[in-house]
Amino acid sequence: MSLVELHAIHKSFGELEVLKGIDLSIDEGQVIALIGKSGSGKSTLLRTINGLEVIDDGVIIVDGKKISDRDADLLGLRLQVGMVFQQFNLFPHYTALENVMLSPQVVKKQSKAEAKQIAEEMLAKVGLADKMMHYPDQLSGGQQQRVAIARALAMKPKVLLCDEVTSALDPELVNEVLAVVRQLAEEGMTLVMVTHEMRFAREVCDKLVFMHQGRIHETGDPETVFANPKTPELASFVGGLA
């Protein structure tokens, strides 16, 4: 059984149907790239997997358990599924270390020492051992995003969702963040990432999911899909990038 299974997910904002029946399974250790035009519903799909959007119809199963929209279920879901945002969203009143420690302490009720140890470990992993005492506004965008990744990892999620984690960064800072994501992928972390970095997707991901107008339009392994797009939409999307 897959780690996360989505069946026939529907989601509308008012009149606008953004997800029109999404089926997707995410296996343990899989690295999935979600691509598609702006407005095709990538972010919305990612956010439903984290319970940030309440779905209108369909089933989400995580680790064999069906998720309802009750608060308790949502909290349980989020314990398994971490998320990193385009805009970092670090808490401005906490240091990098405190940002990472916060949730393990208050949600998982870990002791301060325990949380600190994990936080230090995670910050070291993203290459920020020397910036732990810095506040977000004392860090570059790339550093902030790496703190955000460490913060999500400290909760030991089974899946990490990344929504365009490099889109808000200056070009010269993109690689330091991608390097961290690549390392996670190599360590066997299950990842679902929305990205516009096609070369990165091709190199790192095992599965490519192309979204178009609220549906999964085409899917497959990156090499094949990029080389031989089966649908004209994907062909034009890939062509447009080149």
């Binding site: 984290n50 319970g51 940030l52 608060d71 909290l75 989020r78 314990l79 599924v81 971490g82 998320m83 945002f85 805009q87 969203n89 670090l90 808490f91 401005p92 009143h93 916060l102 949730s103 208050v106 949600v107 955000a148 913060r151 999500a152 909760m155």
Partner: peptide, 24 residues
């Protein structure tokens, strides 16, 4: 985004208010 980040970290409403919202 601050609130969503806290939600994604599995914090409940009270925790979000207390640790993320009220001081800023």
């Amino acid at each position: 985004g601050q609130i969503e980040a806290a939600q994604s970290l599995a914090m409940n409403r009270v925790q979000i208010f207390r640790y993320v919202v009220i001081l800023p």
